[in-house]
Amino acid sequence: MSLDTFNKECDTPNQAIDGAWLSARGLFCERDERILFSNLNFDFFPGDIVRIAGPNGAGKSSLMRILLGLSAGFDGALFWHGQDMNKSLYDFRSQLLYLGHQVGVKGGLTPEENLAWFNPKASQTQIFTALKKVGLAGFEDLLTHGLSAGQQRRVALARLFLCDKPLWILDEPFTAIDKEGVAELEQVVINHAQNGGLVILTTHHELNVPVKTVMLGTQESEMPLC
C-alpha cells in the first residue's frame, strides 16, 4: 500500500472503520517547533504487518510512543477496536507486546527468570522451549549480563514465542541479531500476522512479504509553523 493512503483526507473523520484494531484520525505531532507529521490517518486490521518508515528524525519513535500511549504530546484521536483509546487503555495494554530499543532484560537475572517475570503464568517447560527457539538452549540459568548483546536481545525476543498477545509493537527488532536469526524472526512475524495478529514495527530490513507502510518525513511536514 502506498503512503498516500495514509495521509489523504479520511472518509470517516471521527470514528474508526469497522473491524479495524488500531486506528488514528488526524494525528499531529510537533517536536522542538518542527512538525513531524500532521493529519495522519490510518486503520490497521488483524493480519496486517505495518512498517513505520522514514529517515532519521522523521518521528518514527515519536509515533510509536504515541501509539503506545507513552507520549501525550500530540493532537488527534486514537481508537482501539473502534473505541476511544483513552477508554480502552486497559484492554489495549492487556493485548500488547512491546519490544523497545532497550528491551527490559535484567542483567542480574537469568534468561529463565527474565521470561518468568514477563510471563508469570508460563511453565518452566514453555520458557525452556521459547529459549530453545531463539537459540539460547543451555544458557537458561546463566546470568544475562554474561551473554553477548545479540544474545541479550534474543532473551527479549523469546517473549514472542511465549505470549499470546495479539498486538505486537516492535522497535527495530532486527538490531544486533545475526543473519539466520533475522530470517527466523521474520518468519515469526509473518506467522503471527497470518494467525490473525497485528504487527507494527520499525526496521531498515526489507521483509519478504507485502507490508503496509506509514512513511514519515515527507515534504509536507517540513512546513514552518505559522
Binding site: Y90, D91, R93, S94, L96, Y98, G104, V105
Partner: peptide, 13 residues
Amino acid sequence: YEDGSLEQMLLMP
C-alpha cells in the same frame, strides 16, 4: 529506566 523495564512496567495493564 536504563534497561527499558520501567517502560515495560508502564505498559502493563
